[in-house]
Measured scan of single mutants.
Amino acid sequence: MSIQHFRVALIPFFAAFCLPVFAHPETLVKVKDAEDQLGARVGYIELDLNSGKILESFRPEERFPMMSTFKVLLCGAVLSRVDAGQEQLGRRIHYSQNDLVEYSPVTEKHLTDGMTVRELCSAAITMSDNTAANLLLTTIGGPKELTAFLHNMGDHVTRLDRWEPELNEAIPNDERDTTMPAAMATTLRKLLTGELLTLASRQQLIDWMEADKVAGPLLRSALPAGWFIADKSGAGERGSRGIIAALGPDGKPSRIVVIYTTGSQATMDERNRQIAEIGASLIKHW
C-alpha cells in the first residue's frame, strides 16, 4: 500500500482519535458579512469528516447552483462504474471539434489522439474542462443518470439537468442544476469515506481534487503551510461562485467545507476574496 493510499485508508482512524471539535460562531459572522459585502445569498456548511456531524452552517438547506462543483460527483459516478466493471479508466475516447464547448483548455489539445477516461476526469476536476465533463456525462448516460446515481446514494436534493455550459445559467428560483450545502457536503463525505467506492477509487477521487489547479484564489489562499486540501470550485452566471473541499491540518483532511453564493453584482475577484476570507476565519478558529 502506498503512503497516499495509507493516508486515505486511515482518515477515519486518525479522526477518531482527534480531540473533540467545537464550532466557532466567528466564522458564521464572516459568512454573514460576506453576504453584506456581496449583496447576495451565501450558503455555508462545515462537517466533521469522521462523524458527519454538522459543526457550523448557514442557509444549509437553500438551493444554490452547483456550477462546476458537480464534476466531482460526476467522476465519482464514473469511478463507481469502474468498480462495477462497467468502465475502464484506460479506455480512450475520441471526439471532434464539434464536441468542444466553451472553456476546454485540455480537451482542445487532444482532438487528434483523444483522451482516456482517467485523463478526462483529471481534466474535468483539476482544470474544470467543460468538454471533458460533457464527454464523461455521455459515458454514464447524461445528466439524468448522474441525478439517479445521487438518488441511489441517498441524495434526493442534488440534481443535474443540463450539460456544460448551460448548467451554469443560475436563474433565480430555478431548481435545475442545483444542490443544497448540506446535501453536497453529505454526498461528498460519502464519496470520500464511505463504502460506495473502493479504496482505490476513493484515493483516485481525492487525488484529482488535491491536484486542483484553478481554485488557488479561494480556500487555498488562506491555508497555512502543512495543511491538506482537496477541492473543486465552480463559477456561473449572475454572480455565482462555489467551492467544495476536504481539508485539515497535519497533512490530512478532517472536515468537509461547502460554500456557495449566487445573485451578486460583485466582480469575480471580490467573490473570490470573500470566500478566501471565510476560509481564513475557519482556519483561525479551527
Rank of each mutant, 00 (worst) to 15 (best):
K284Y: 15
K252N: 12
E169A: 13
A77Y: 12
P143T: 07
S104I: 02
N98D: 11
V29N: 15
N130A: 03
W227Q: 00
Q265G: 13
K284C: 09
L38S: 08
T147F: 02
T27E: 03
K284L: 13
T261V: 12
R59K: 09
L89H: 05
V78I: 10
T107W: 01
E46N: 10
I54D: 06
M180N: 13
R59P: 00
D99S: 10
I243C: 08
W208S: 03
E195G: 14
I3Q: 13
L199P: 15
A9N: 09
N173V: 10
Y260D: 00
G279E: 02
L282H: 02
L197V: 05
G251H: 14
T139I: 14
S281P: 03
W227H: 02
N272A: 05
S281C: 12
P25F: 08
L188Q: 03
P181T: 05
A124F: 00
D207C: 10
I259N: 01
G251S: 12
T112A: 13
L120D: 00
E56S: 11
S68A: 00
K32S: 12
D113Q: 13
R92A: 09
L199N: 14
Y95F: 13
N168K: 02
D250Q: 15
V258T: 07
L188R: 00
S80E: 12
E166G: 11
T112W: 15
E61M: 14
P253K: 08
E166D: 14
A225K: 14
F64D: 00
F6E: 06
Q274Y: 10
G279F: 05
E277A: 11
L55C: 08
L191Q: 04
S104A: 08
N272R: 03
I278K: 00
E145I: 10
P65T: 03
E26K: 13
I278M: 09
A235T: 06
Q88E: 13
G234M: 05
G263D: 06
L100W: 05
R81E: 07
I275H: 01
P165H: 05
P143K: 03
R241N: 04
K32L: 12
K213I: 11
M1E: 01
D231Q: 05
E108I: 11
P224D: 06
I278R: 00
V78A: 06
K71N: 00
L137T: 07
L19T: 15
R59C: 04
D113H: 11
R92Q: 09
P253H: 10
